[in-house]
């Protein structure tokens, strides 16, 4: 087993600090790509590293450490998305005079590098992505936006390649209808 992992298992604080510094940008990036909300992504980032700290003893080295950490990030992001969906459903039953917090849940932060002429397209696409189920949203983001391979996505989402293909295909159909 890798020396760094041995140190992490033994509870070495310094090894943990270096792990956070190495992976924090990637973890935040993945969370942000999926959630597009800075506060939520920061929360996921925190929760991911806490989970890493708590379950490093269970890490068996079947996948690389980076894949394992990103898988935790994706699971945490999926949990957030599911919670948001549930919350949005509850808010839809509230009377019109109640404060509409559901709007703030789905607020979209655009990447600062998006060109001005592409902003409208980006907003339309993100709105369409928001209507997808959490699993479809994550699979579509990984395959179509981050352009990672199906096998990598299947490893990250802990699903078969067939399942990922089906999720992406259904997501594509929905999005195509929305951006017509």
């Amino acid at each position: 087993m890798d020396n760094q992992i041995k140190k992490l298992i033994s509870g070495d604080e310094e090894a943990f600090r270096s792990l956070v510094l190495t992976y924090q940008k990637r973890v935040f990036h993945h969370a942000m790509q999926i959630l597009r909300n800075k506060e939520e992504a920061e929360d996921v980032c925190q929760e991911t590293f806490i989970q890493v700290y708590q379950s490093i003893k269970n890490y068996k080295g079947q996948s690389s450490l980076a894949t394992w950490i990103i898988r935790i990030t994706i699971n945490k992001s999926l949990e957030k998305l599911r919670k948001e969906k549930r919350r949005a459903k509850i808010y839809s039953f509230l009377p019109w005079w109640m404060p509409d917090e559901a709007k703030s849940i789905t607020s979209t932060t655009l990447h600062p590098d998006i060109l001005l002429e592409n902003k409208e397209k980006a907003i339309a696409l993100y709105k369409a992505i928001d209507t997808l189920s959490p699993n479809q949203r994550v699979a579509f983001t990984l395959i179509k936006i981050e352009e990672i391979s199906y096998s990598e996505a299947s490893e990250l989402m802990n699903l078969s390649i067939k399942a990922i293909e089906s999720l992406v295909s259904r997501a594509k159909e929905t999005i195509k209808k929305k951006i017509k």
């Binding site: 600090r17 924090q24 935040f28 800075k38 992504a41 980032c45 590098d113 592409n118 397209k121 352009e147």
Partner: peptide, 18 residues
Amino acid sequence: HLNAIRGLGLWHQENEVL
């Protein structure tokens, strides 16, 4: 539409995690 948001690089994180 996808090309509008592809290859944008990593998101910039304002708050340190540690």
